[in-house]
Amino acid sequence: MNKVFDFLNNPDYNLVESFWMTIKLTFFSAIGAMIWGTILAGMRVSPVPIMRGFGTVYVNVFRNTPLTVIILFTSLGLSSTLGIQLASSESSTSLADNSFRLAILGFIAYTATFVCESIRSGINTVPVGQAEAARALGLTFFQVLRIIVLPQAFRSVIAPLANVLIALLKNTTVAAIIGVAEASLLMSTMVENESDSLFLVFLVFAAVFVALVLPLGLLMGWIAKKVEVKR
Rank of each mutant, 00 (worst) to 15 (best):
N2T: 12
V4D: 08
F5L: 14
D6I: 01
F7T: 08
L8S: 05
N10D: 15
P11S: 13
L15M: 06
T26H: 07
F28T: 05
F28S: 03
S29H: 06
M34S: 11
W36L: 14
W36K: 00
I39R: 06
A41D: 05
A41L: 02
M43V: 01
R44P: 01
V48H: 13
V48Y: 13
I50F: 15
I50N: 05
M51F: 15
R52V: 00
V57N: 00
Y58D: 01
V59P: 04
N60I: 00
V61T: 03
N64E: 05
P66K: 04
L67N: 08
F73E: 09
L76F: 14
L76T: 06
I84V: 15
Q85N: 15
S88Y: 10
S92D: 13
S94P: 00
A96C: 03
N98R: 06
R101V: 03
F107R: 13
F107H: 08
F107K: 10
T111A: 06
F114N: 07
C116N: 12
E117C: 01
E117K: 02
S118C: 10
R120S: 04
G122R: 10
N124S: 12
P127D: 13
A134K: 10
L139E: 06
F141A: 10
Q143N: 12
I147Q: 14
I147F: 08
Q152I: 03
A153R: 10
V157Y: 07
I158A: 09
A159E: 08
P160E: 11
L168C: 07
K170P: 00
K170S: 11
T173D: 07
T173G: 13
T173R: 00
A176Y: 06
V180M: 11
V180T: 09
L186V: 05
S188K: 12
S188Q: 15
V191A: 01
E194K: 14
E194N: 15
L198I: 15
L198S: 05
L198E: 07
F202N: 13
L203W: 15
A206I: 08
A207F: 14
V210D: 08
A211Q: 05
V213G: 06
L214V: 15
G217E: 15
W222E: 10
A224I: 03
K225T: 06
K225E: 13
V227D: 08
R231K: 09
